[in-house]
């Protein structure tokens, strides 16, 4: 009798079945996320050129990163922070406003438009080459050069994608354009899910316009989706890098004018084969992303 009760207790408290159900995810997560991160952290303490066995060098990579790598401190980090500050919150607000605007439409147009807004983040590589490279083409046949010359603003074409003054702003514009990603879809779903009766109640309580509805009802009810969107926006902006290299056509970008952290990692990892140093930079990136997502979680979880 006594042992029977214990048996029941043991069964009740054990989470065997739960672990069984979790197993596939845990296996995949470990294999593709946890192990690579662990290896990256280990590699970041070594000098590794992909041919010889990694040599342990302690914190040297990190010390070099902060004190010796002038390109990182003078160009890459400022570029990345500017890019993240503008594209992160900017793209986030844009996603929210667009999601909110789309939610006001009927189902048919909404689906089509949502697909259109979502497509840049899906097809970015191809679309970028086709669309933006033609727009910002460096000779007078490029759309923007041609327009400006015709209006008399400039007299000779600007080589947009090699000019160190314009490359980063262009990358930021393209980044904003392609920032309507998963976060956008999640917010759209969140807005569509909100309770209709709440809006009715609010209307009775004196809410006058759509803007007030948004402030007082929509945002408070969809906090989880907002949080998800914010975290995704931050992670995505810090991990963006393909845009600048694709637009400039080379890594490193001209005079490092639009070099982001990810480009810097690729530069060291896959061009110079300094894997240990590249791993150290990616661990630093991990730290930055973690820091910012913690801050955004704090911001949205409060109250």
């Amino acid at each position: 009798m006594k042992s029977g009760r214990k048996e029941i207790e043991r069964l009740e408290k054990s989470n065997k079945s739960a672990y069984l159900f979790l197993a596939p995810y845990i296996l995949l997560f470990t294999a593709f996320i946890v192990v690579p991160i662990a290896i990256a952290i280990i590699l970041s303490f070594t000098n590794f050129n992909t041919i010889q066995f990694p040599k342990f060098i302690g914190f040297l990579n990190y010390i070099n990163l902060i004190t010796q790598d002038e390109v990182f401190m003078q160009k890459v980090l400022p570029n990345t922070v500017v890019y993240a500050i503008i594209v992160g919150p900017g793209g986030y607000m844009l996603s929210f406003l667009l999601a909110w605007a789309l939610s006001q439409l009927t189902k048919g147009p909404r689906t089509v438009l949502a697909l259109i807004f979502y497509s840049p983040s899906l097809t970015s590589g191809v679309a970028m080459a086709v669309l933006w490279k033609i727009l910002f083409s460096g000779d007078q046949t490029g759309y923007i050069n041609s327009l400006l010359i015709r209006l008399g603003v400039i007299t000779e074409p600007i080589i947009w994608l090699s000019d160190t003054r314009f490359l980063l702003p262009i990358v930021i514009i393209v980044g904003l354009w392609s920032s309507m990603g998963v976060g956008f879809l999640a917010m759209l779903a969140g807005i569509l899910n909100s309770d209709e009766s709440l809006y009715e109640a609010a209307a009775i309580d004196g809410v006058k316009n759509r803007f007030q509805e948004m402030i007082y009802i929509t945002i408070p009810t969809m906090k989880p989706q907002m949080l998800f969107g914010a975290v995704m926006a931050i992670v995505n902006t810090f991990q963006n890098g393909a845009i600048s290299v694709q637009l400039a056509g080379a890594n490193p970008t001209p005079n490092y004018s639009a070099q982001l952290i990810v480009n810097h990692i690729e530069d060291y990892g896959f061009i110079r084969y300094e894997m240990g140093y590249a791993a150290a930079v990616s661990v630093a990136l991990l730290g930055i992303v973690y820091l910012f997502s913690t801050v955004s979680k704090k911001l949205f979880k409060e109250d």
């Binding site: 010390i63 002038e70 003078q74």
Partner: peptide, 14 residues
């Protein structure tokens, strides 16, 4: 100033 600061960082960061 960048250079001065860099030298200071090298010495005192740890």
């Amino acid at each position: 100033f960048w250079e001065v600061r860099n030298i200071w960082l090298k010495r005192n960061l740890v």
